[in-house]
Simulated scan of single mutants.
Amino acid sequence: MKKVLLKQVASAVALLVLALSAWALTDKQRDEVSSRIAPAGKVCLQGDSGCGAAMAASGGGAKSGKEVYEGSCQGCHATGAGNAPKMGDTAAWAPRIAQGNDTLYTHAIEGLNNVGMMPAKGLCMTCSDDEIKAAVDYMVENSQ
C-alpha cells in the first residue's frame, strides 16, 4: 500500500515539475517555439490589402492574353486535353465563336463541365477576369 502511494506521489511531483518547467520558459525560448510552429506561408487572394507586399512582388501590371494562354491555357488548348478546342482549329472553334464573346468569357471565367472539362479560369486563380477575357480573345483571334 505504501509503495502504491509512494508511486502516486512521485508521479504527481514529476508532473508538477514538468508543468512548471514548461511554464518557466524564457522569452527567448518562447520566441524559438513560436518561430518553429509558425505557418510556412500565407495565402493572399486578389484584392486582399493585407498581403500588399506579397501581391506586389508577384508581378507588375496585367498579363496579356498571350501570356495567360502560355501560362495556363495551352496545356489543354494546345493538346485538346479534356475535349478542349485546340487553338488554331477553326472547325472546333467556329460553333463556339458563333455563341458570342460574352458566352465564351462566361465559360472561361466560371468553367464548363458538360462537355469535357473547362475549369474556372483554366485554374489560373491569380488571373483577373479581364486577363481571362484577353486570353479568350487571343485564342479566338488565332482560331478563325
Rank of each mutant, 00 (worst) to 15 (best):
A24Y: 10
K7W: 14
S128E: 11
A56V: 05
Q99N: 02
S35E: 15
I97P: 00
A78Q: 12
Y138L: 06
H77M: 03
I37M: 11
L104G: 01
N83C: 07
A134T: 01
D89H: 05
A62E: 15
N101G: 10
A38N: 02
K28S: 12
D129R: 05
V43I: 15
L16D: 08
P119A: 11
R96H: 10
A84R: 08
G61Y: 13
A10E: 10
N142Y: 02
N83L: 15
G52Y: 13
Q99T: 03
C51R: 00
C73T: 01
A12L: 03
M55F: 04
V68P: 00
A120Q: 01
C51S: 02
M125C: 00
T79P: 04
C127D: 00
G50I: 06
V9T: 00
D31G: 13
T106I: 03
S64K: 04
C76Y: 05
G47V: 03
Q99K: 04
G122M: 07
C124M: 14
A135F: 08
A92F: 03
M117K: 13
K7H: 12
V115A: 13
G60C: 01
G122N: 07
A53T: 14
A120V: 01
N101K: 14
V13R: 09
R96S: 06
Y138V: 08
L25P: 10
N113K: 15
R30D: 10
A94V: 02
A57F: 02
M87S: 02
S21E: 12
A57H: 01
K121T: 00
A92T: 04
W23R: 08
A78T: 09
H107Y: 15
V33H: 11
G47D: 08
I109W: 02
M118F: 13
G41D: 13
T26P: 11
N142G: 05
R36A: 14
A120T: 00
H77W: 05
A134L: 03
G71K: 03
R36V: 13
Q144K: 11
A94D: 04
N83Q: 14
A98D: 12
D27S: 07
A120N: 02
Q144L: 05
L18Q: 07
G41R: 06
T126L: 07
G50R: 15
M87P: 01
G61S: 14
I37F: 14
S64W: 04
Y105I: 08
T26M: 11
L16W: 09
V17W: 12
D89L: 06
N113E: 14
C124K: 11
Y105W: 14
T79L: 06
K3Q: 12
G61D: 12
K28H: 11
K133A: 05
